[in-house]
Amino acid sequence: MLDKQTRFILGAQDPEMREIERVVESAGFARAHAARGGRRCNPQTAYAADEVVLVGRDAVPRAVLLPPKTPTVFVECRLRGFDPVTTVDHHHPGDPGWGVPPERFLDGSSLGQVLRLLEREADETQRLLAASDHCLTAAYQGRCPGVDPHELLFLRASWQAKMSGRTLSDVIEGILQAAKQVRRHHDSEFGESRFLDPTQMPSDLPEGAAYAGMPVRYRALLPEGVLKEMYKGGTPEAVEAFMDEHRQAGREVYGNPYRGYAGAYWPGTA
């Protein structure tokens, strides 16, 4: 059991983290958001946080005082100067969920780990969120016990529609069309579908590739001008090969071979 004085420090926002925050609040625990330079962290800065904030409904980050001896749980983040009571994560070697297979997705996902800490059982929606975050391609292919791929598609498309302002039917159609393009572009020599021109990337490509159950490599130009190449849906060996390729080229690399994804950033493109 966690001490009620324990505070959860939450990393970058996504559907799973949003649900983690709701669960933590409903269990009566305080929470704060990892921040850097006064702004809530994104996936790139979450492991180099230097302060904490609380972002309200108005999206304004407000500084939070965190006394040095406060017991903390880090959820997909790190905060300079603090040693957590425990860490909830699945992104890096040594994390509790690092090498957990799809068949045990609740043990691997951050949401599942938080539920276990709070001694709660996952409901149907939480199982869908946990599976989609921990191993999306495997979940779409029916490898996560108790997770219906059709319900997963509806949940994921609903979230994307809400965030993008598109209609639900438009998002679902986009995912299905992207899946068709992934199948058409499959390169048997490389064992993957390639979309290397950021200006020609189909909408909903990552989701469509996961739905198709096929490895995909694609590039995107981020808002800050950084070129990023991503690989998703591959075997552990294929993910390792992707990461080694970019490390040898001197690029910043991240990924988890056991979860089937990796990415790399081109230096000097900002």
Rank of each mutant, 00 (worst) to 15 (best):
A139Y: 12
Y140R: 11
A264I: 05
E25C: 05
F195S: 02
L128V: 15
T199E: 13
Y47V: 09
R259H: 13
F74R: 05
H33W: 05
G165H: 07
L128P: 02
P267A: 14
L106D: 00
G234R: 14
T70Y: 05
V64M: 13
S203M: 08
P71E: 02
H246M: 05
R36L: 11
R78L: 13
M243K: 07
T167P: 00
A63N: 00
L66K: 07
Y258L: 12
D83R: 00
G99C: 10
S193T: 15
A262Q: 10
L10P: 01
V52E: 08
E151K: 12
E124M: 04
G142P: 00
E224W: 14
W98E: 01
L129Q: 07
P145I: 12
Q181Y: 08
L196P: 01
R219D: 06
V182E: 06
E189D: 10
T125Y: 01
Y140V: 02
A264D: 07
G191Q: 04
E240Y: 08
Q181V: 03
R80Y: 07
T199M: 07
L118S: 00
L129I: 15
P96A: 09
R217T: 15
A32E: 00
D107Q: 14
T6E: 06
R40I: 06
R39W: 13
R18H: 03
G263Y: 03
P43A: 14
A209Q: 10
S203Q: 09
R104P: 00
T125P: 00
T6L: 05
G28A: 04
G11I: 03
V100D: 02
S164Q: 14
E121V: 02
E229R: 13
A220V: 15
E21I: 11
P223V: 07
R57C: 08
A49K: 01
R219N: 07
K4S: 05
A46R: 00
E103F: 12
H246Y: 12
L136V: 14
Q181G: 00
R120Q: 14
D244Y: 10
G250I: 11
Y258Q: 12
A49I: 06
L176Y: 04
Y261L: 14
V55Y: 09
R57M: 15
V53P: 03
D244K: 10
N256W: 10
L118C: 02
S169M: 01
G112C: 04
T45S: 12
E240K: 15
A270S: 12
L115N: 01
R143Y: 07
P149L: 09
G208D: 04
E245P: 02
H91I: 11
L118M: 04
P96Q: 06
R18L: 11
Q177I: 01
A30K: 03
G94V: 13
S109C: 12
W98R: 09
V23E: 06
E173F: 11
D83H: 02
K228E: 04
R247Q: 06
R251V: 00
R57Y: 03
R18Y: 02
D89G: 05
R39H: 08
L111N: 02
V239F: 11
G81R: 03
A270P: 06
L115Q: 08
Q13W: 06
